[in-house]
Design a protein around this nucleic acid. Structure first.
Lengths: 223, 223
DNA sequence: ATTAGAATTTTGAGTAGTCAAAATCACCGC
DNA sequence: GCGGTGATTTTGACTACTCAAAATTCTAAT
């Protein structure tokens, strides 16, 4: 029985939700799942119970849900398709990185194995998508790269933007406008808790100050 | 209310079914529709009544169904997407023409306006897909080109294969193997009702004999 | 220990699409 | 004009997914 688009979306949401979680439990609460999927809480409960039936997740009533091995593998494959498609749309079709998410969201559920492997080949087996998100392997494995965010990296040190953990189009356009796309090199000049802000110095010495919430979404690596 | 994949498939099937029809009525019988969609006859009836409610088709109980203007335009747009995608998969991703149909069948329901226009542009606004099927315009208009089939074209006259009206993978591979793809030049040497066969002469003087049913699926133009 | 408040689950109902099988209709041959 | 045959429609039921709102459970504060 191949999974429906709905099932794939649930698995993906659990996968992504779980990856935000700290702690060994990795139990994603129903409310959070329902919110990220845009469904009513009861709907999520019902669906998760069904997923548990088919062995794709482990469900602890009132506590939350966690992917099983099989579920995790399936979710990673959905993500693999999504990210390859995003990169393809940008690289081959010349679409902007802030406008490919919705198309990829649809396409990820219908591209055949053959087609996605073709795309992977044309792209030269890339490791990350346009946002720096890692592309899971054909086998459903993801390489988790430990990265600092702009909140945790050292000050006055050149760092390279590696990944952006927010797909919002306006936010992405903002990053593009200020040369903060993955690959760019920057330095954190200062952080200030009180004003909730982080000051950056760009390559050509432009300065820019952003909020901490935004700063937390930019992952970097010390060079 | 944007049409579901199911609705799009019904409209497409009616469009295609109607185009096979002779006569001014152009009424497609329910049985034929159900058959081409692979659903039970009663299912088709139910669905068609709903389509009639929303003004996409005209339904005459016990006689059949016919697309309305709006339905026809919508169907043509689905076909436009399908055919652009097929050509894209062949031209840009290097897939074989006999293996792109199923992917296109899925993708046609989810590609955004933006994406399909991008594809159209990359392909240089083509007029036909890999099988020679005309690509409807952005506005949902199709240019019907009058073509002979191998059953009706003149004998001993060079003709160019323009279109193949069968998507079966094995049939397409057969055509490829014998240089009968659109664009190829051939001549009909003989037709024989009794043996139900048509004899062809290819470019490099190879000869080949095929059945009349197969011959009817190859549309050609006298040069 | 109680209890208020929040999160979760349950319940009842609705939509879209489907099928099998029973009922009905249309038409052709006599 | 009558009946039989084949196509069509109707009926009743089922699956997958969804919601709103009622009921329940958990947790944390007193």
């Amino acid at each position: 029985m191949l999974p429906s688009s709905t099932v794939e979306n649930y698995l993906k949401a659990i996968f992504l939700g779980q990856s935000q979680l700290t702690g060994a439990q990795r139990l994603l609460p129903m409310g959070q799942l329902a919110l990220s999927l845009g469904v009513a809480p009861g709907t999520a409960t019902t669906m998760v119970k069904a997923l548990a039936e088919s062995g794709l997740v482990e469900y602890e009533p009132y506590n939350g849900v966690r992917l099983s091995g099989a579920g995790s593998r399936l979710a990673a494959l959905v993500l693999r398709r999504h990210r390859l498609i995003e990169l393809f749309l940008v690289q081959v079709l010349g679409m902007r990185w802030d406008e490919v998410h919705d198309d990829a969201e649809q396409l990820e559920h219908v591209v055949s194995e053959r087609l996605i492997e073709r795309i992977d080949e044309v792209l030269g087996h890339p490791e990350v998508d346009p946002h720096g998100d890692p592309i899971p392997s054909r086998e459903g494995e993801v390489v988790w790269r430990a990265l600092d965010s702009l909140l945790t990296c050292p000050l006055h040190t050149p760092v390279t933007v590696m990944r952006v953990t927010d797909q919002d189009a306006a936010f992405l356009r903002f990053l593009e406008k200020h040369d903060l796309k993955p690959g760019q090199s920057i330095e954190v000049e200062a952080r200030d808790e009180v004003s909730d802000s982080v000051s950056l110095k760009g390559k050509t010495d432009q300065r820019i100050t952003i909020g901490m919430r935004a700063a937390s979404k930019l992952l970097v690596e010390v060079r």
